[in-house]
Design a protein around this nucleic acid. Sequence first.
DNA 1: CCTATTTTGTCTCATCTTGGGCCAAAAGCC
DNA 2: GGCTTTTGGCCCAAGATGAGACAAAATAGG
Lengths: 407, 407
Amino acid sequence: MRKIDPAQFHVATRGTSRDINRRIALTLVRARQPISRADLARAMGVRRSAVSLIVTELLKKGLIIEGATGETLRGRKPTFLYIDARRRTVVAVDIRASQTFVMPADLLGQPLGGVTHFPTLRDPKALVPALAERIKRLLAEHGGAAACEGIGVVVPGMVEHMTMRILHAPTLGWRNVDLLEPLSSATDLPVQIENSGRACALAQLWARHAEPGIEAGDLVFVSISDGVGVGVIVRGELVRGRHNIAGEFAHVPLSLDGPRCSCGATGCWEAYVSNRATLTRYFGRAADLSGPVPADQLDFTIEDLIARARAGDAKAAAALQTTGRYLGLGLASLVNALDPGCVYIGGEITAAWDVIGTTVRAALRERALTPGAAAADIRLASAQQYPRLQGAAALVVAPAFAAPVVA
Amino acid sequence: MRKIDPAQFHVATRGTSRDINRRIALTLVRARQPISRADLARAMGVRRSAVSLIVTELLKKGLIIEGATGETLRGRKPTFLYIDARRRTVVAVDIRASQTFVMPADLLGQPLGGVTHFPTLRDPKALVPALAERIKRLLAEHGGAAACEGIGVVVPGMVEHMTMRILHAPTLGWRNVDLLEPLSSATDLPVQIENSGRACALAQLWARHAEPGIEAGDLVFVSISDGVGVGVIVRGELVRGRHNIAGEFAHVPLSLDGPRCSCGATGCWEAYVSNRATLTRYFGRAADLSGPVPADQLDFTIEDLIARARAGDAKAAAALQTTGRYLGLGLASLVNALDPGCVYIGGEITAAWDVIGTTVRAALRERALTPGAAAADIRLASAQQYPRLQGAAALVVAPAFAAPVVA
DNA sequence: CCTATTTTGTCTCATCTTGGGCCAAAAGCC
DNA sequence: GGCTTTTGGCCCAAGATGAGACAAAATAGG
């Protein structure tokens, strides 16, 4: 039950009903393809005639295509409908501290080719031409720029949604950077930019084969790497907040007098569970993540630590278990506060889930307020699926399938 | 940009456009009354003819009425439209641990008479007849039961939204109580039940004279009494969560090794800022709120403590300041996580805001991640406005004005 | 006093959409 | 071959907004 904002609303015009039903039809084709017009009409609960008109329109626009004819027990065989993914592509870009990843994908968000990467140039003025060059080469192999619907970019930082300016990306050293205009004019394509943690949440929401429980659209994505990013989706929509900074659960304190965090405050969840926190714990250093990374810690990654733990290094195993415990305690807060249908965990540490999973769950149970919260559905987003790049693709793909803004 | 749930959606039918525009028109009449048909058409950006048809329908249904004619500089004088609040009433009920409050209100949520109260009977079987009796007497004075649209009830506990069962209300000692059926059949009126913290948030959202910044529909209500209740509204809609327990920010820890909370965990925000926490601090007791209230603390309220602080009691003032500091630190988490347009604080402690306000703000600033978060808009909901009862009224009133569920 | 002007609210017609039913085509069963 | 079933298209009714005309009402101004 949503209140209509008397200062900003959207009245229904002649095309509104059609718009609503067109997007529902598209959503259903996407979710259930292949599907016939008759099945679509049954699924939607409208007449076949109404569906026919919508389908004709979508065919003419090239959003869907007719494919093979299906089988029925009796009667005329149906002609199947599909999302026209082949001739429409998107480019997903993931800019990270050291490397920038690029992936071509189709309209369903499925990868069209391999993921390529190159060292991230810290100067945006140098990065944009290099990136545009790569994108152009990539598009030449996959249907050309004409078939490309747009470029989705995710960055590890705060992005202002309206202008898509990158307000602050600490690991890149960027402040108030505008990638939209230069990249858009260099490639002549629409560009969407979003924070990587949020984009990961979007990726799960818009995943083609949505897992049961996701469809209701209440999920949280916790991305654990050097920092911790959280994306929150409520009723199928990303929570952005008034100043577009919603989702900073990483800096909710576990203990006010805890370790100093990179944000300057003390005891943030991030300061307990980020990769850097885990490594610092392993090295037995003072828990202070506000300064630069110590030199001898630069070449030692969380993967190395996991490998040592597996090899029998008790200190490494203990550091992981401690991180797992704090991870679970923080998840409890998240679950108590938002009660999501599902929590996704992403990041390198998921590779060690067989080791820390029970610890995480035990800690979660310890602070969960209700049995429902204690039984929260926790799932892993494996790095093989490139959740960030999937999210970048979703930025471009989603608008065509999203619910129309009405009332 | 909301994803359409392919398992549950709402197609547009012939009446959908009208439904959307009817509710927008109602919302605008409510927000801007008195307003003429022509002004309504201008505000909505549709033809006067379309508005005329909607208005005729609403007049026939008795939802709005025509009133006096207005003034214009030239031309025919407009006939003003109003929400027909006079002949439609609701009853708001606030069940608390010691007293139950009842208030009649009109369709705009404005009180029709004084607030009456009577001691809460702990046995639901005894409470319902007594409550129904009071409601009937009240309605006899205010237009009779026929004019009553329904009863809104708020309780200090967890309410399952679908069935409206009260799953757990610790201060009442209720578990899995059904008030809906007995109260509804005793009064022959529709009944809505909700948690009081959430209802307070709804009250602010649906307040007749919405303050600027609220209209966008991103707000949080923090209700501080014996416990702490939080209601979160995102984009004009209450966040309920998968298992209907969303909003339990009160039990996010400030410090894992902090005082024991009534929920059994340690270091919850509630264990730092609830009235009981403040009193316990004043009495210099061990910080453990899991047991029963000590006998000598039963007759000493937070109001008494505030009075003593004003009278120069340094220990009382210190206890309040400490609460203020923890309040601000917790608010920082809330603001960082959700980035609401506005945070409302309710409860007895708001009476001491002149004393603790700067402390709260300083603590908030200390942990705020961005200047925007540090400048979060904090407002007080005074007890004189009966936020709980306003929320109870909103439960019944809101559905008529809410946006239709579409797509 | 009378006319022009402006504004409101209603009415008519065009356009677009879904709702309902009919029909031709296609395919299997008997 | 006839019957049944199913699909997909077509036609018209019903209901909505869009555009504009029009009467009523009130003021301004000669």
